[in-house]
Nucleic acid binder design. Structure first.
Ligand SMILES: [Mn+2]
Ligand SMILES: [Mn+2]
Ligand SMILES: [Zn+2]
Ligand SMILES: [Zn+2]
Lengths: 140, 140
DNA sequence: TACTTATTGATAATGATTTTCAATAAGGAA
DNA sequence: TTCCTTATTGAAAATCATTATCAATAAGTA
């Protein structure tokens, strides 16, 4: 998805397209690592100087509501966002540079069934995330 | 592990055993759901009225350092703690009452190997957590 | 172009966590 | 037990992140 598509999505849902939003969208859309509100602010302000931090918060909130971006939980903090994956995907994070990759194809049905039987819980969701070193950081 | 063992662990590591710490330890140790600092504060103050919230923060910090408790990440917030699991265990959380269960035996080696091959990442850690309804909340 | 109103950024308010500090009490030594 | 050193404590202040307020502005439609 390109930045234009994100803006179209916002528009479709009744939100106006503004310079502030465009700057935030362009910043987050092209990032390959999860960004905090302040990071987005600092980067997006290079595109649109007048941008306020409050608007970054508000825009991220809306993008998350529309499932265009998703929150990323990490040991150091849980207030960072990345372009959302499509369908059933999970995150793989580089512990060195923060680079994010998505993967799919996790087959947890057997495990979940077994845990459900053992514990008596009815299981409806799962969080799954991998950590390691990206190909780049691996060599350097 | 009982509260006494937790206190012994603290002592072994050079920390003094105080009424404040004992109150915090007893509270967290017997809880079957993850507690936030304020929740610990409110509960522990019934055992030791003079307790300060700051001491709760400080004690939780130390217990986490010693791997006696662990942080629990949830959609609503990531600042809650529960008695740590032993060995390689993962969490199963009741979305209704917050009850926590541990499970083990997740075999992710094949998946991780496959993801590693596809992405080029060297994978060293994983986060895995299940959500659902505990046996109790299931019927009610 | 004109008009309605969502959006904006500055500012203030709030809430959570951390720091500071003087008083206290834990616990090892005598 | 009694001392004595110093880690620990809670109150208060400081800091940091997030949210609410509000008057000015600009998006988008007619
Ligand atoms: Mn999955
Ligand atoms: Mn595992
Ligand atoms: Zn990397
Ligand atoms: Zn339950």
């Amino acid at each position: 998805m390109s930045a234009e598509v994100w803006l179209t999505q916002l528009h479709k849902n009744g939100y106006r397209i503004t310079k502030a939003r465009a700057a935030v969208v362009e910043t987050v859309e092209k990032s390959t690592r999860a960004l905090t509100p302040v990071e987005v602010y600092d980067m997006a302000r290079k595109k649109y100087r007048a941008l306020g931090l409050v608007t970054v918060y508000r825009t991220l909130e809306k993008l998350e509501e529309l499932h265009i971006i998703q929150r990323v939980h990490q040991p150091m903090g849980c207030q960072a966002f990345i372009s959302a994956g499509h369908g059933h995907q999970h995150l793989l994070l580089c512990q060195n540079c923060g680079q994010v990759a998505f993967f799919e194809g996790d087959d947890l049905d057997a495990l979940i069934e077994s845990v459900s039987k053992k514990t008596g819980y009815q299981i409806s969701e799962h969080w799954f995330q991998l950590f390691g070193l990206c190909a780049n950081c691996r060599v350097n």
